[in-house]
């Protein structure tokens, strides 16, 4: 009985943290400066948010077949989301989209890649 309670509490904590992570990721997608910076916001959704939500569901899952599916979804997201993000970054780079560069916190933002 005691153990079940602890597992439920961890699951709730993980779900809430994941929900917060997803919200912050989407906020970053909206707020940050240029395409390359927004990719970091999308990265939070795909790694932290998705991982914590799936972990919370894993602890709440009733059967082992359900747990297996959740683990598979996590693995799949972990393998495909960085590849997709890298593909977008590479495509933007080759299409000539220059990232905003700021070498120190006080320096002004300048446009152009240091290649």
């Amino acid at each position: 009985m005691m153990v079940e309670n602890i597992v439920t509490i961890i699951a709730i904590f993980s779900l809430s943290a994941g929900a917060l992570g997803v919200l912050f990721g989407a906020l970053g997608l909206l707020r940050l400066g240029d395409v390359y910076q927004r990719m970091h916001g999308a990265g939070i959704i795909d790694t932290g948010g998705a991982g914590l939500i799936l972990f919370g569901l894993l602890l709440a899952s009733p059967e082992w077949t359900v747990s297996l599916r959740l683990v598979l979804i996590g693995l799949l997201l972990g393998l495909t989301s960085p590849t997709a993000t890298h593909a977008i970054a590479r495509a933007a780079h080759f299409a000539g989209v220059k990232p905003l560069i700021k070498t120190s916190p006080d320096a002004p933002i300048e446009k152009g890649a240091n290649e």
Partner: peptide, 11 residues
Amino acid sequence: ITLTPGTVSVQ
């Protein structure tokens, strides 16, 4: 590198 948020491999 891409999997850790904050860094994205571009090329």
